[in-house]
Each structure stands twice: as C-alpha cells, then as structure tokens.
Amino acid sequence: MTVVTKPLETTRATAVEKGGRGWSRIVLHAVVIGLMLLWLVPTLGLFVNSFRPAADVARSGWWNALFPPWDFTLDNYSRVIAANNLGDSFINSLLITIPATVIPVMVAAFAAYAFAWMNFPFRNAIFVAIVGLLVIPLQSTLIPVLRLLAGAGIAGEFLAVWLAHTGYGLPFAVYLLRNYMGGLPREVFESAAIDGASPTTAFFRLALPMSVPVLASLTIFQFLFVWNDLLVSLIYIGPTNPDNLPMTVRVASLVSSLGGETHFLTAAAFLTMILPLVVFLFLQRYFVRGITGGAVKG
C-alpha cells in the first residue's frame, strides 16, 4: 500500500509543479500554510499557557511567553494533579477505557466472522439492521439504560460503563470487521474446511491473524471513543459515584467551577489530551485506514 502510493504522490506533485505558474504556487502554499496555522495555533496556545504562571496567563496573551524573558513553570500541572484529584481520574479513565475497548472488539470479532463466512437465515437482514443502529443517538437510550443499570445495582460502577460502551461500540465494530473479514480470500477458508478444520480453528488460526490490521484500527477507534467520551460516564457514573469519574467529566466540571482560575484548566485539558495524542501520532496509519475502510473501497 505505502510502497505504491509514495512514488505516485511525488510524480503527481512534480507534474503539477511543472505546469503551475509561479504566482499560483505561492498562493497555494500560502493557503495551505495558513490553514495549518489556523489548525495548530489553538492547541499551541493552550500548550504554552499551561506552562505559564497564573498571573501571566491572566495579564497577557500566550504569544508573549515566546519572547524573553522566559518564565515557564510546572506549577499548574502539580497543582491540578494534587488539588483536583486529576491523578485519580486519569487512572479512572484508564480503568474505564481498557476493558471497554477489549470487550467489544472481542464480541464483535465472533459476530463479524459469522456474518462474513457462515450461512444462516436472515443473515443479511440482521446485518443491515446493525448497520442501521450505527446512527442511533446515545441520547435516545440514556433513561432506560440508566434505569436498567440502577436496577441491577451497578450504576456508578466501572462495570456499568464497560457494558454500555460495549453496546454502543458494537454496531461500528461489527460493521468494520465484517467488511474486512468478508474480503479475505475464500479459497483459504474452503481449503481449511476440506482439510477438516472446524470453524473455531479457522477463526482462531486464519481469520483472526489475517485481520490484525483492521483489529488494530478498531482498537484505536474504540479506545479514542471511550477515552474522549463525556456523556456516558457523566450519566451512568456521575450522579451515583463521583469517585469513579474519568478525566473528561472532571475537566468539564472544572470549566464551570473554576471561573477565574483558568490557568489550571490549561494543564487539566492537556493532561486529558496526552494519551490520545500519543496514540494518534504513533498509530495514525491505522486510524486513517479505519476511517477510509468504512467509506472508500480499496
């Protein structure tokens, strides 16, 4: 894939460059760089502010910190971690996210394999119904699910959000995995069946190992989705057990409660972004493949 696109991209660029006139090239670069700046500056500003003393943040814009005399500090980070239990909620976010990522991927893998390689009545109808569920707004499920979870005595527990995120994540997970598994070569499974391999063997020894790229995409997606979620935790954990709240909910409540003390907020927001940004920067390829896999063929 990458081997093919790389040289293609360069030939494209050179072909256009030869044809393009000087001025239009300058405008092109100006527009692209302008957009890149517009997209980077907001995050950059927050990043710079998170290392500035409180008084400076209130008195002057973040860009002033770029010129000497430099005065950077880690105060905001240490204060927000100590005073607002953000350290605890970072752990909570991890404890929520990891199981809520592993469970749906696993459940979806079995279902996707059945939809792709087993014959049964209503197979397509059921699968199409699942694709339809992709767009059901979370909001239309909140009240009944909250009552179910409260009735089962697990509202406020991590278990409640693990289960809820599994349910909410499944339509996309089944859809993505089924599309990929359905594209695996038929001959492989046929010859395995002739050799007497059971469906379980075919699944564990063939389908799963061959689906590693799409499993990676899906894992990243579900991870980011759960880590960045506000609503599910806010409602299924929030009112009952504030000690279990993840970072997103804490930071959202800091926004309203801190009022003037916005300098803490910069550090808090950055702490919530660290993990997604690291995941994104290192695994961007899989992330992109997950998005395009659902919409563009090939």
Binding site: N228, L230, A252, F280, V288
Partner: peptide, 19 residues
C-alpha cells in the same frame, strides 16, 4: 496537522477554544 483535533475530546477542544 488538520487531522489531529479528531483525536482529542470535545471537552478538551472546548477548553482550547474558550482560550
């Protein structure tokens, strides 16, 4: 660069833009 904001939470984006 353009793709990056998709990885962060709406909450963090809200904080970024309130500044």
């Amino acid at each position: 660069v353009i793709f990056l904001p998709l990885a962060i939470s709406f909450v963090a984006a809200g904080v970024i833009w309130s500044f």
